[in-house]
Nucleic acid binder design. Structure first.
Lengths: 163, 163
DNA sequence: TCCGGTATTGTTATATTATCACGTGTAATG
DNA sequence: CATTACACGTGATAATATAACAATACCGGA
């Protein structure tokens, strides 16, 4: 029953504001980079932000379809790929799912805290793993391109619940 | 053209010995824990060790089939699930694949260095991420169960190659 | 503005990965 | 030996993802 200690997907917050802010942020970033945040892409990002958890490609597809976009898998996959490619979202491999990036304006190595109960994903930029990974990579003669850390466990809300 | 700096999947080594040793090791661990390393499971582990890279479930299945085991996906998935469950192998989410664990006798948080060219996977126990992750989890009120770090890049052999 | 190239979207079809459900056999208990 | 749990095999199907191609929308320069 302890309170979350810092702002995150796990803490209570004004979600409408959170979504709106993230969308504005994304618009700005896209404008700066000369990227086309088209209607499908925009809507896909909104869906991820509104859900505030990881969504499967087919969940996104269903909702896009409801909004009058194409109904075939590539529609969703392409939008999601674009978002991931440009840092607006992340792909959560363990869940075969996608989640909006909470910090699209910062370059970062994402670290995900994934709740096994409710699938909420919190993204952190704070974990300092890059240095130790790079050091180890050096020993192996390995050139690092990307890395991805997924932490599985239970979020504060689900710790109390019976589930 | 630099030489690998330490023993790993990326460095040249006597692979026959490496496989045999790992199998003996697995036998011992299984015996200690009272686990049944049945023929399918044993063979699946051998396949992973021999390949010395991550194999997809269907690759494993094909080879098991050649060896006279069942030919349907659950055969492979069950064997692989067993191996992962008990620490003889790891699942590499990014590749939708499985790789033998190089250190089944040590409890560890695996870190994988995945070559994007040749799919060879090196597993390291040396990277110290656990502390920083735990600290961050504490701030979020998140209870950690497992974690998994996958690093993408290029292995020493593939850095020289044209590919 | 008009043209030509490029990016984006939509669609059909298919590939790849993974699980469910159920029957049969087999091994370890007591 | 009976019982019980586990393991295995099979058929069917679910869930995830990509390939290939046509139609359209955007954007630059002539």
């Amino acid at each position: 029953m302890s309170e979350p200690k810092q702002m995150s997907a796990f803490s209570r917050h004004d979600h409408g504001t959170c979504v709106a802010g993230a969308m504005r942020n994304a618009e700005n970033v896209a404008a700066q980079k000369g990227l086309r945040l088209t209607p499908v892409r925009r809507r896909a990002l909104e869906l991820l932000l509104e859900a505030h958890k990881a969504l499967g490609a087919y969940e996104v597809l269903d909702r896009l379809k409801e909004d009058g976009f194409g109904s075939q898998p590539p529609v969703a996959y392409r939008a999601l790929e674009f978002l991931v490619e440009h840092g607006f979202a992340h792909r959560i491999r363990r869940l075969n799912a996608f989640a909006a990036c909470m910090h699209p304006d910062h370059a970062h190595r994402p670290v995900f805290f994934i709740c096994g109960s409710c699938s909420t994903v919190a993204e952190s930029m704070e974990v300092a793993v890059q240095d130790s990974v790079s050091k180890e990579a050096g020993k192996l003669g390995f050139v690092v391109e990307r890395m991805n850390l997924e932490v599985l466990g239970t979020c504060p809300s689900c710790q109390g619940a019976t589930a």
